[in-house]
Simulated scan of single mutants.
Amino acid sequence: AASFYNPIDILGDSGADRYEKALSTVLKDERINCVMVLLTPTAVVDVEATARSVMTVAARTDRPILTSFMGKERVEPATKMLLRHGIPNYSYPEEMVSSLHAMYRYHLWLQRPEKRYPTYQEFREKAEQIFIDAKRENRTRLNELEVQNVLHAYGFSPPRSLLARTSEEALAAAKGIGFPVVMKIVSPQISHKSDIGGVKVNLNGKRDVENAFFDITTRVRNLLPSAHITGVLIQEMVPKGREVIIGITSDPQFGHMIMFGMGGIYVEVLKDVSFRIAPLSKEDAHEMIRETKSFPLLRGVRGEPEADIDAIEKSLLVLSQMASDFPQIIEADINPLLVRNRGEGVVAIDARFSIGGD
């Protein structure tokens, strides 16, 4: 029996006139935006006449009509006719539906409101001398203090930090910042400090600091004897929060791209990241965060409060501005960017910058 609902079944013995009548009737309904015609030829079906009926109706409407005439050689003359009249034909219905879905997504994209591109022009001047000095000295990386100063210049909030070259300086720095503290190796040859045991956390007193200084520097000298050790960085111990990573990478084809993902030591394992071409719009930053699989963790699970997602979005936009201000940045990441609860902001715990070119 025929079906008068969607999908409409006009039976296998339908002639071309029934196809034309059914199509015309359907398109009288203003709620119908598109029609897909599926034809599997039977012994009594005139395929070419059916194609002409479809073409006749298509000429009277501005709404898209897609066809899937199946049968390869038997339907080939009819499908050529359809194509000549601008009616796409697909060998299988799945391809037809996929194409319609792509058309719908493109329609939604066209309907999107104009993107908003915020600018932060006031930051560049504060950081420019750091990049000038690095270029003059032919360095490909910024050192720890330079990284901290760049982050400060662009409005990020790194932990309070002091550079120490001896255990005595490390202890004095720790006392000045206040226990507990974190200690990190500082060397231009070492970018992934945790991988070689170059980070010690939760140091709570004189003995902890002295032991950590000896352990870190000895370990680095044994593992990387050619590495130049500038000293150690003493940082305040920041209360826990959710860790994300944001970064810049320079792509040969697309130029600077901005990255977001869940951070910490597992970022290279989880690979739950998203990218956009710089400069970012507010809409880009909003979407980047929400398209990662781990986004629900930022929203809060099992009674956890929501993280400060607005602060992450602003951080991405500021990083995009930095990429535009300094095209010589080849790669940069802030990992982890510690995200506090909603309204409490973010803290740039660690970062690295690789530079080159002009």
Score class of each variant (00 low, 15 high):
A22T: 05
A22Y: 01
S24Q: 11
T25Q: 12
T25E: 12
V26Q: 08
E30A: 10
I32Q: 08
I32E: 03
C34V: 00
V35L: 08
M36V: 14
M36K: 08
V37N: 02
T40I: 15
T40Q: 13
A43V: 15
D46V: 04
A49M: 01
T50A: 12
T50R: 02
A51G: 09
A51L: 05
S53L: 01
S53R: 03
S53G: 07
V54W: 07
D62R: 12
P64S: 09
L66H: 03
T67A: 11
F69C: 14
M70Q: 15
G71R: 08
G71F: 07
E73T: 14
E73K: 15
R74L: 11
R74I: 14
P77I: 07
P77H: 06
A78H: 02
L82M: 07
H85R: 15
N89I: 00
Y92H: 07
P93F: 04
P93V: 04
E94D: 10
S98A: 14
S98H: 05
S99T: 09
L100W: 08
H101E: 11
H101R: 14
A102W: 06
A102L: 10
M103F: 06
R105M: 13
Y106A: 12
H107P: 02
H107D: 10
W109I: 13
Q111F: 01
R112S: 06
K115I: 05
Y117M: 15
Y117D: 13
T119Q: 13
Y120T: 01
E122V: 11
F123I: 04
F123W: 09
A127R: 05
A127P: 02
E128G: 15
I130T: 03
F131I: 02
A134C: 12
N138M: 07
T140W: 01
T140V: 08
L142S: 05
